[in-house]
Design a protein around this nucleic acid. Structure first.
Length: 266
DNA sequence: ACCCAGGCGACGA
DNA sequence: TCGTCGCATGGG
């Protein structure tokens, strides 16, 4: 780990919850440190005794990249205050305080949430792990890069059989082909507003409203994306029968993380 | 043996 | 356009 970056934390920040609340699938905890491969960089992250986030890595990376990745460039004090004006949202925020919405690499996020459909988290993690070990680049005995769209786009369904992803394999190939060809492009999604990006990403087979919102929220910086899975639908019935409160307007995705964590615990 | 899992596409009305 | 159903696989 040659490179060392130290980031200031403003507002609530819970690294453990943020990495293991179901938005990311490739972080591993060892004692009080967390390890992963992000892009092609082997990374270790931890909170030091001055409550700063330390990010160590094998390759150089801009400080701004990690601020955005860990959402330390966002006004979470402001989000927090706004959401807590609503009593029900306040309960969710307090239960799940410190969770942040990461900004993760696009292709990895896209494929990960395609794999997540009609699936459970242990198996999602296992399939992603097999995908990286079979088609990514080796960093060390445990860690591999996430395979590129180019590499996956050249595979056949039989090649992909080793990851045991079932009916999702054909969706993975379609996503890889459309990203590799440029038909679906991250920079375009970033520049589109939410509504247009929501339509664009669903051109990929196996990407419906839920997966689209996950990719837009967890990678393409659309804070108003509001992924509606079975848990959130349950929460909406129980807690927000009249729809999301006005306090969440524009930051529905931030609220979603708190609500998701709350409903799963209760 | 069954049931379900951060959904989606195909199909019929 | 809307509701229903099958889908690969593995763990409980």
């Amino acid at each position: 780990m040659k490179y060392n970056i130290i980031l200031d934390i403003v507002g609530e920040f819970d690294l453990d919850k943020t990495l293991f609340c179901g938005q990311a699938f490739r972080w591993q905890q060892k004692q009080d440190k967390y390890f992963a491969v992000v892009e092609d960089n082997y990374v270790c992250a931890y909170i030091n005794d001055e409550n700063k986030l330390v990010v160590q890595s094998d390759k150089p990376q801009q400080k701004e990249y990690w601020q955005k990745y860990f959402a330390l460039d966002q006004d979470y004090v402001g989000y927090h205050n706004r959401l807590c004006k609503n009593e029900t949202l306040k309960k969710c925020v307090q239960q799940a305080s410190g969770i942040r919405v990461l900004t993760q690499p696009f292709f990895e996020t896209l494929i990960s949430f395609i794999i997540s459909q009609n699936n459970n988290i242990p198996r999602i993690t296992k399939i992603i792990d097999l995908l990286c070990k079979n088609f990514g680049n080796k960093i060390n005995d445990e860690f591999y890069t996430f395979p590129t769209a180019q590499v996956l786009s050249e595979l056949s369904l039989e090649d992909l059989q080793v990851i045991r992803s079932g009916f999702r394999a054909k969706y993975i190939l379609d996503a890889a082909q459309k990203v590799a060809s440029g038909e679906v492009c991250y920079d375009v999604l970033l520049n589109q507003d939410y509504q247009d990006a929501f339509i664009t990403i669903q051109k990929i087979k196996g990407v419906g409203p839920k997966v689209a919102d996950c990719v837009l929220l967890f990678s393409a910086e659309k804070k108003c994306a509001f992924p509606k899975d079975v848990w959130i639908k349950k929460a909406m019935e129980q807690l927000f029968a009249d729809g999301l409160p006005a306090e969440a307007e524009g930051i529905e995705g931030i609220a979603q993380q708190y609500i998701f964590e709350y409903i799963r615990k209760n």
